[in-house]
Design a binder for these strands. Structure first.
Lengths: 141, 141
DNA sequence: TATGAACCTTGTAGCGACTACAAGGTCAAG
DNA sequence: CTTGACCTTGTAGTCGCTACAAGGTTCATA
């Protein structure tokens, strides 16, 4: 498949795909006789992963790490175990936060359906001190 | 509370806090006699919310929307109902993706514990065509 | 009282991750 | 044989910070 098709299939700009190749995020595609990039199903899978991971707030560096983990899934385990656990903690924390936010939004929908006009303050889902976990360390480095 | 304290409490640079104020993300703080910004508990809550929402992949524009929803929680409901529903769809989609990723990572941890060396290919959690939802439209505008 | 850290201001510039556009060329379908 | 999708290199713009400069004020402490 050519770059345009891959772009349409993943909702990514062709320029961004070439950018990912330059950055080593996406492996270089084979080339046709006419020097067009020729992508495989694996490329589609990887690019889809990259886009979703980015949407979920992972940095390029973290995406690189996750891709590397994936590549080494059947290699020596001890090497990657801690990395996997660290990622898992972050992922589960994100799920917790999003679940809290989702619940607040659902509360609002119910309130709007007229069941009851509640005081649905969205910010409290993630911002309140009554939040499940109190995190203080810098979240972005 | 002064800017440094708020910065430490939220893991945000003081410069970023002032930037948020310029951008209208965080309401301007009161000033002390000596012209220092004087933040309230509400500021802390809001800033915590903003930082977490950003971590979760929401753009500044989306954060603005969420804050606006929060402000209008007790205002005419019909106006914001569709906005809330749209946000809810996006949030729940993120939760789904993260849950899939979390499961893959947990699989890897189990494999590393020696129970069984599986073929935990992380990319398949978000990248596979066997993914729950197949999304095609551009994810970032 | 003086040092130094923490704050204030305005302004500029860098970074990460794209996104866009230019300029010039190749290739394949209608 | 034109049109559109692709190729290349390069530059520059956007968003969301982040850093640093330069100059000034405030405040705790030695």
């Amino acid at each position: 498949m050519r770059i345009g098709e891959l772009a349409r299939a993943t909702g990514t700009k062709a320029e961004t795909i070439r950018y990912y190749e330059r950055e080593g995020i996406l492996p270089a595609a084979d080339r046709t006789d006419s020097n067009y990039r020729d992508y495989s199903e694996d490329h589609l899978t990887t690019l889809t992963f990259v886009r979703r991971a980015r949407e979920l707030g992972f940095s390029m560096a973290q995406v690189r790490e996750l891709l590397a983990l994936s590549d080494h899934a059947d290699k020596p385990c001890q090497d990657v175990d801690q990395l996997v656990r660290d990622q898992l903690i972050e992922v589960d924390r994100k799920i917790e936060d999003l679940t809290a936010l989702s619940n607040k939004l659902k509360e609002m929908v119910r309130a709007c359906e007229g069941e009851r006009i509640g005081d649905c303050r969205i910010v409290e889902s993630l911002g309140g001190k009554n939040c499940a976990i109190s995190r203080v360390s810098d979240p972005r480095g």
